[in-house]
Design a protein around this nucleic acid. Structure first.
Lengths: 206, 206
DNA sequence: AAACAAATTAAACAAACGTTTAATTTAAAC
DNA sequence: GTTTAAATTAAACGTTTGTTTAATTTGTTT
């Protein structure tokens, strides 16, 4: 789908408002005001509020697998690759955290008329790529056998999102006084914690 | 706050609907219909939709710290306690997953007029209890030093919630054909994965 | 400059929203 | 049996919702 400047303008405003106030908490009038366009333009370009969300998802959720595969084939050191994967995922998910938040909440109840098929397909393919990498590491006796690979991603993404969903809590707890401090914490401490977690899990049979 | 049967009836319906459709996605008319009460009773008992949510939170979010402290003092084996803590948290969070979902989404955007103070206070106290336990283990050289204790909870809760938010994805992936199969997976495989993760993280310096 | 489709607008639509009202029923106290 | 307060009701309140309409403007092609 080709998107013109005005459509992108609408999608950016949509992402921000949906993430802040939720799908139902955001009115198309708010979006039209934030994007500085007439309210009828949203129906004109996207058809409906539901379709608008779908357009946002495909706009944001592409080309991740390529990045992932590139990270895996960049080095022969399994731990280096592992760190790179975690770092890549955190960076990526952090940049698109707003869209992911929307997905989490709209996908989990499921009842709505929103098409998540391409999101799910993406997720499955990404998991396969990781699975292949871990399996290779297991064959070379670098990683242990007894690991739920499908839950690796849950631990990586889940840890990040729990931090994000409780940002205000951690902000107070860790004295992260401004957005810059949060950014630093995410890309340093939080990323390291997840890297450490995944490496420990893949090597240490307790 | 003393709650009569009718009020509890309302809160149960509220929890289900808020978790399924979100705060804004749920109308008080839906709640009144699900709870089988007149719509005016909600204002009559709780004052407003916002206050109704606050009542739900305090109704669900009490007495956890007691359970936590009891689990910690039950054994002298640090790993046994660790497993118990994870198991307790998963059980508890799974039972109250609907309310936690609501909190995650309403607390993270923050802008609404909902009072989360007692929730945050609870969270802080629980973290302190865990911190004390881990610190003791560190002094006895059972746990390693280089661990972000404040992110331990993020990994435990985050892993669970990522599974929950992507339930449909994992259901398809793991052939969990009915709710009973999901229950079993949560309390067996998922819990074990998290236990393994936490123990590995606390013992293995990679 | 005329013609034309695409872009943009203000206004209107019925439906649903959270909340309040004022009247009625219920149940316990006297 | 009367009184009194709590519980419950149907109806109405003014807003806001997502979407559509029909008219107007814009920019390009002829």
């Amino acid at each position: 789908m080709e998107l013109n400047d005005k459509q992108i303008q609408i999608l950016e405003a949509t992402e921000k408002l949906f993430a802040e106030n939720g799908f139902d908490g955001t009115s198309v009038r708010q979006i039209s005001k934030a994007a500085d366009i007439n309210i009828a333009m949203i129906s004109y370009y996207f058809g409906s509020k539901e379709k608008l969300l779908e357009a946002l998802l495909t706009y944001r959720m592409s080309d991740f697998r390529m990045q992932l595969e590139s990270a895996i084939s960049k080095s022969n050191d399994y731990f280096e690759v592992l760190d790179d994967i975690v770092s890549l995922i955190v960076k990526r998910i952090h940049r698109n955290r707003r869209t992911h938040k929307i997905i989490n909440f709209e996908y989990s109840n499921g009842c709505r008329n929103i098409d998540f098929d391409s999101y799910v397909e993406n997720k499955k393919e990404n998991l396969k790529v990781i699975e292949n990498f871990v399996n290779r590491g297991q064959k070379e006796k670098i990683f242990i056998q007894n690991v739920q690979i499908e839950l690796l991603m849950a631990t990586i993404l889940g840890t990040y999102f729990h931090f994000y969903y409780n940002k205000k809590f951690y902000q107070a707890l860790l004295n992260l006084t401004d957005e810059a401090a949060i950014e630093r914490y995410v890309h340093a401490t939080l990323t390291q914690h997840i890297q450490q977690t995944i490496k420990a899990l893949l090597t240490n049979a307790v």
